[in-house]
Simulated scan of single mutants.
Amino acid sequence: MGDNNGAVPSAGAFDDVFAANAGYAADFSLAGLKPVAGRGLALVTCMDSRIEPLDMLGLEPGDAKILRNAGARVTDDTLRTLVLAVYLLGVERVLVLPHTRCKMASVPGDDAVHDLIQQEYGVDTRSLEFHTNSDQLGALGHDLERIRHHPLLPAGLPVAGAIYDVDTGRISPTDL
């Protein structure tokens, strides 16, 4: 087993999720589901646990490719994944969906997050880029343009942005 910075998994730390999987597997009904996006959708959204991507968009398993990260940002890895999804996994349209009250949009920048982690935990994270941006609509517009103008994605690929409200469940499309 690798070093993992000296961290050793706690015995039993995952027992609850492994036990829950036994019940899930007993009633498993997704066998044979094709690996393509059945409704041609790729969704880029935040990792926030208040977001239920399938339910909030009226989707079923297999309908969409869902890409999640802190802040719903279109990073280089997101673009890499979208290229694969478009050419190999049936994606024909992309929705970028950040949300209200996002921690990554509530700080003045990456330096604030680095400082907080350093002060609270003694860990220097400055080798990472967190892509924080307190101008959430500006960041969304930038991210939409990254997709629209990526040289490996098809010209004319439908790309849209919206904001998900974690307090009401409503999605507000943007005109960016």
Rank of each mutant, 00 (worst) to 15 (best):
K65G: 06
Q119I: 07
L176E: 06
K34I: 00
L137E: 10
N5V: 12
L140D: 09
A160Y: 14
G62L: 02
T168G: 12
S49F: 03
V166D: 05
A11R: 02
V166I: 04
H99D: 03
G23P: 10
L33H: 06
K65D: 07
D165C: 11
A85L: 01
G12E: 13
L84E: 01
K65E: 08
A85D: 01
G71D: 05
D77Y: 14
A31V: 13
Y24F: 04
F18T: 04
D76Q: 08
L84T: 11
I51V: 14
F130H: 00
A19H: 00
G32E: 11
D167Y: 07
L116R: 14
L59C: 10
G71P: 00
P151L: 11
E52R: 06
A160P: 15
I51W: 10
E120T: 12
G141N: 09
P53F: 11
S127A: 10
G161E: 04
L176A: 08
I171V: 15
R148E: 13
P108V: 01
C102R: 11
R146Y: 03
D77W: 10
G138F: 02
R39N: 09
D3T: 15
R73D: 07
L67F: 00
R93L: 09
F18Q: 05
P53Q: 14
M47Q: 04
G90A: 03
D111M: 13
L57M: 07
C46H: 05
L67D: 00
G122F: 11
L140G: 03
V159P: 06
L157F: 05
E92A: 09
A64H: 07
R170A: 15
N4P: 03
Q118L: 11
S134M: 12
D16N: 09
G6T: 04
R146A: 10
P108E: 02
G23A: 14
Y87M: 02
S127E: 08
I66H: 01
V113H: 00
L144H: 02
A162C: 04
T100D: 15
L95D: 01
L88T: 05
D124G: 06
G156N: 05
